[in-house]
Design a protein around this nucleic acid. Structure first.
Length: 576
RNA sequence: GCGCCGAUAGUGUAGUGGUUAUCACUAGGCGUUGCCAACGCCUAAACCCGGGUUCGAGUCCCGGUCGGCGCACCA
């Protein structure tokens, strides 16, 4: 039996040994917070990313885009990351501990510490005690520590750039192009799978907290009044899962199981859109092999939310080692980001929503006779033109104030035109629903949950019970003996499977049992063995990793059978 | 960043300042082998990095890196 604490060590040892995960640039000494995916790990990660694409790109119809991982400073000034992603830090002169300056100050009774400037805060800190060694700090320097990696663009180093701390901003800054691509209609979405970077102070926990990590994010732009009208909500209306609201967390209660319909109706989840992607996330995670009993959805506590989000739910996966690990964040980012970029860039980020019926709106226009007014007032004429438009004329004319001077414009120098105009629609700023997946954490969870040990013929067998969909190698092909032409036949079968797009690995080294075990350890779900009967009747044995059972199958049927098994449209048990 | 602990072949390990650094598994080659880590022979493979103490350092000391745990940090 494997004990709980062993799993992490066993699985990481296996992952290192068999080429899933390596410390980065080991020959120079690894760097904390960075990992290399080895041959099998990179393949598995691709498969997980592609399942994600199946859900979001193919099924939801949200196309993938690809933006640079470096963006100019303005992008992150607008997003709030330059200001908001930085912590004010100070170092204790006695014990050299780095401390959050605002926390220390507030602990010492200083009010409004979080809004103070660095110099101000440094003065306020002089009388406060260090949280670590409890000495009075005295003279300290307060500095900002920003979690973004800073760099410069171009040879003159004038232009500041940052490595993106999330992929999301790329979708926001491309909003106008995306809106046009989707032919000016809501809802629409864009997704991105790529690297993001955060210069964590002290990254640990292996693949769980990285300085460079892969995110898969979707930004779904919706009309703010239609967040409860997801067009495909019926798909998940009856989908049930455990939900842990912030109310329950405060009362230390267990998660309750609700359908998405109930969750929205009871106000547990803010709206249909959020609930839809909560359910989709559940389905997606289960499909890559996460056990439902190790999956829960937890609502963020109000003080835990990011600077932009209103309602926010995390998909958390239970790890033997790390407890509940936040793996997917589902946030309603409202119109925060689009407003911020519109303001910073000066580009409107709105959608024109046409009314079903044009609204009849009375409008008064005041049209001055500029031929006369221009000559009469010369350089004041322009100001008068504008002031007149906003004035309320009476029967004998209008009074306007220009540079403090009151000027009377007689009624015959302008025309008042009252008309009724059609307002056909309005410009609105869409709200954004954002599911954001931590791919590396998903990979870790898949590895940890796949790890298993059982007994075969009295010997310990280590087996990675990957879903066939994510297993790096899909099928192994063995000749029973490396003679009598069995190896040639096995080699032909391998090539035939490659042609069908199946990743098959040929192996003729060592005893047959050893070869099965090697494949079990890297989680290859199926193995084909060519034996002497193959020469008689063109059949081979097909072995199932988990049950170790075998069935005979015609060589001709192999490609389609394996494709179905890998896809999950057929199970091994159904082969008879 | 702080404190405590650790780092030896691919993996897991032994090693109380003094031989050619132990053992097992793994891997590669040859032979053998008729379906679940069989066997024989052969081969490859390691003291984290940099200083210091010493006639002599894998071993002791200092610094660094990485990893684990606790604290702090974790939009």
């Amino acid at each position: 039996m494997i004990t709980m604490s062993d799993v992490f060590e066993n699985v990481m040892e296996l992952a290192k040994r068999r080429g899933f995960i390596w410390p980065t640039s080991e020959c120079y000494g690894a760097v904390a917070g960075f990992i290399d995916y080895g041959p099998l790990g990179a393949m598995m990660k691709r498969r997980i990313e592609n399942i994600w694409r199946d859900f979001y790109v193919i099924r939801e119809g949200y196309y993938e885009i690809e933006c640079p991982t470096i963006a100019q400073e303005a992008v992150f000034i607008a997003s709030g990351h330059v200001a908001g992603f930085a912590d004010k830090m100070c170092q204790c002169p006695h014990c050299r501990e780095f401390l959050r300056a605002d926390h220390v100050a507030e602990g010492g009774g200083v009010k409004n510490a979080s809004t103070m400037k660095n110099e101000e805060l440094a003065l306020a800190l002089a009388g406060c005690k260090c949280l670590a060694c409890e000495e009075v700090l005295g003279k300290v320097e307060v500095f900002g520590f920003n979690l973004m990696f800073k760099t410069s663009i171009g040879p003159d180093s004038q232009r500041v750039g940052y490595l993106r701390p999330e992929t999301a901003q790329g979708m926001f800054v491309d909003f106008s192009r995306l809106l046009r691509f989707y032919r000016d209609k809501l809802p629409f979405g864009a997704v991105q799978i790529g690297k993001s970077y955060r210069n964590e102070i002290s990254p640990r926990q292996g693949m769980i907290r990285l300085r460079e990590f892969t995110q898969a994010e979707a930004e779904i732009f919706v009309h703010p009044d239609e967040k409860n009208k997801h067009p495909r909500f019926h798909r998940y209306a009856d989908y049930r899962m455990p939900l842990l609201t912030f109310g329950q967390q405060q009362k230390c209660e267990e998660a309750v199981s609700l359908s998405m319909r109930e969750a929205v109706d009871k106000g547990v989840i803010a709206n249909e859109y959020l609930a839809y992607y909560v359910a989709l996330t559940h389905e997606m995670l289960v499909s890559i092999g996460i056990k439902p009993e190790r999956l829960r959805f937890r609502q963020h506590l109000p003080d835990e939310r990011a600077h932009y989000a209103t309602d926010c739910w995390d998909a958390e996966i239970l790890s033997d080692r790390f407890g509940w690990v936040e793996t997917v964040g589902l946030a309603d980012r409202t119109n925060y980001d689009l407003n911020a970029h519109a303001k910073e860039s000066g580009t409107p980020m709105t959608v024109f929503i046409q009314y079903a019926e044009p609204k009849k709106v009375p409008r008064r226009r005041i049209i001055p006779n500029m031929g006369v007014l221009g000559k009469q007032y010369r350089n004041k004429a322009k100001a008068i033109f504008e002031a007149l438009g906003n004035s309320t004329p009476t029967a004998d004319g209008a009074d306007v104030v220009i540079d403090g001077e009151k000027i009377h414009i007689p009624a015959d120098l302008f025309e008042v035109r009252d008309e009724v105009v059609d307002i056909r629609g309005e410009d609105i700023v869409p709200h954004v629903i954002e599911p954001s997946y931590g791919i590396d954490r998903m990979c870790y969870a898949v590895l940890e949950q796949a790890y298993d040990e059982d007994e075969a013929d009295g010997e310990k067998r280590t087996v990675m019970r990957f879903s066939p969909k994510v297993a790096p190698v899909q099928v192994a092909v063995f000749p029973l003996m490396t003679r009598d032409g069995l190896d040639t036949i096995a080699d032909e079968i391998t090539r035939k499977l490659h042609k069908a797009g199946i990743l098959a690995e040929y192996d003729d080294s060592g005893a047959i049992g050893r070869r099965y075990r090697r494949q079990d350890e890297i989680g290859t779900p199926f193995a084909v063995t060519v034996d002497y009967d193959t020469k008689e009747n063109n059949t081979v044995t097909l072995r199932d990793r988990d049950s170790m059972k075998q069935v005979r199958i015609a060589i001709d049927k192999l490609p389609e059978t394996l494709a179905a098994l890998v896809e999950g449209t057929k199970t091994f048990g159904e082969l008879g």
